[in-house]
Simulated assay, not measured.
Amino acid sequence: MPDPRDHRVLIPIDVLEGQTVPATVIDAFASIPVVLLGYREIPDQTGPDQARDQYGDRMQAELAELRSVFEDVGCDVTTRSAFTHDRLKTFERVAVDASCDAVLVLNPAPILETILVAIRSDVNVEYIAQLLETILAGTDLELTLFHVASDEDGREAGSVLLETARSELVAAGVDDSRIDGTVVVDDSPTAAILEAAADHDLLVAGESQPSIRRFVFRDRAERLARRTVDPVLVIRGEYLESQRDDETGNGETDG
């Protein structure tokens, strides 16, 4: 069984705009270390140091209050803050720097009982299973493994893929009775995932490109996050490229 300390989830929050983490999400992620990233995207004409001088104390106070809520449920939590001209670049950099397995795109979550896990044929299901086992520990959450085949010829391969994923989850310590599986045929994976997600409370998707910015915020996951009312957890690829930008040219400061 994997050590929960081997995993970590990044949760970006615009706390200065009043964004919060739903209590249901806090409870569900109590078993896994999280990094709370308080951020504020600032206009090009505003310097990061200027923004920090003006809003830094308030940012830290809001983060401290939110951190205490996570700590009250026994969560291992750290905080980071950033005033940046490019929030997407910041999310990616912090995820890499803090060795986060996944990024949680927040949406309201009045209840959190079921998880839809969208699995493609080209992802590392063992890696996803180990992270999911850590998240599921200490909860009653149930999950549905979901695969979209492009045609009927791909349905059987999809079923094999989901059985492999189920086996990995069971091997990681998840009770088989908590796992369901569904394969559908659809030429629009995004539409099929959205339709299925409507019957679940949290959507989990694997990263399809070696860049959080390209996938989470400029690709399918962005459309999923914008068009579903559920939180979306995007699991990073096991070998995420780590292209570091010059911070002074990035217009960013954090701490």
Rank of each mutant, 00 (worst) to 15 (best):
T164D: 15
V35D: 04
R40I: 04
I135A: 09
I128Y: 13
C75K: 04
A118Q: 02
D246L: 12
E133Y: 11
D180V: 05
Y239S: 06
P189R: 06
T90E: 08
L37P: 01
I13Y: 00
F70S: 09
F91C: 05
V117L: 07
S150C: 10
L145Q: 06
H85Q: 13
P108H: 02
P4V: 12
V183S: 10
L16M: 09
P4E: 14
V123H: 10
L66M: 15
V117E: 01
L63Q: 13
F146T: 09
A198G: 15
S150I: 13
S150E: 15
Q60W: 11
V170D: 01
F83H: 08
A165E: 07
S150V: 14
D245K: 14
R227F: 07
A129T: 07
E252R: 11
I42N: 09
A198R: 15
A149Q: 08
A95M: 07
I13H: 00
D57C: 04
V204N: 02
T84P: 05
V204Q: 02
R120A: 11
V94K: 03
I119N: 10
D76T: 09
V234C: 00
Q60V: 12
V77S: 06
L203I: 01
Y127H: 15
E92T: 05
I212S: 00
D57T: 11
E17C: 03
A30S: 10
Q50A: 13
Q209S: 11
T253Q: 15
D72E: 15
L136R: 09
R93M: 03
V105R: 06
E133A: 15
E168I: 08
A192C: 10
E168V: 07
V15C: 12
P43A: 07
S99D: 10
I193W: 04
V216M: 00
R155Y: 10
P48T: 11
R40T: 11
A165S: 13
A149N: 06
H200A: 09
E195D: 15
P210C: 00
D201G: 11
T248N: 12
L37H: 02
A191D: 11
A118L: 03
R87L: 10
T134I: 10
G206V: 02
L10R: 02
T114N: 14
V9C: 10
V148K: 11
L136D: 12
E41I: 06
L37D: 01
E17P: 00
